[in-house]
Amino acid sequence: MSVMVRSKINGDDIEFVCQPDETLLDALRDRAGLTGVKEGCGTGDCGACSIMLDGALVCSCLVLGAEAEGRSIETVEGMANGDQLHPLQQQFLQHAALQCGICTPGFLIAAKALLDKNPDPSEEQVRYALAGNLCRCTGYDKIVRAVLAAAKQMRKA
């Protein structure tokens, strides 16, 4: 028996129908068409499916689609403001903080969650805040630099 779900996704009122056992990750990708949310493991270990759910950073593979009823979701697709990239997106490009780019949406969301709480993190704080997101290409060096640079840019703004 399918479930009708009404939620706010990236500021828009979105309705979708999903199976009761369907993950929010699958619902976002297959029902709402938001394929920027990636599946790397399906078990909450890699962070590629990171989203904000009512302001909390979660792995969408560990949440059911039905649980999104009446709640607010932010994904990578909602980060830029029109053609104005979010400072994190700008700095990820500037620092070449992505190679293949599959983990990038999750990193951007997790980094935004960090900077929303802590606008001036240390390198160590960045490293621990992003420890739930796996990247296999970069060795994290350029990702950490990009997040620190974005934090600086946002503090000046």
Binding site: G36, M79, G101, T104
Partner: peptide
């Protein structure tokens, strides 16, 4: 030189299409 990559914006905005997309 070190210019921005041409496929970069698609990859930071979630538009790039990978295997499962």
């Amino acid at each position: 030189t070190r210019p921005l990559r041409p496929d970069g914006i698609d990859k930071v905005t979630g538009r790039a299409r990978y295997g499962a997309d």
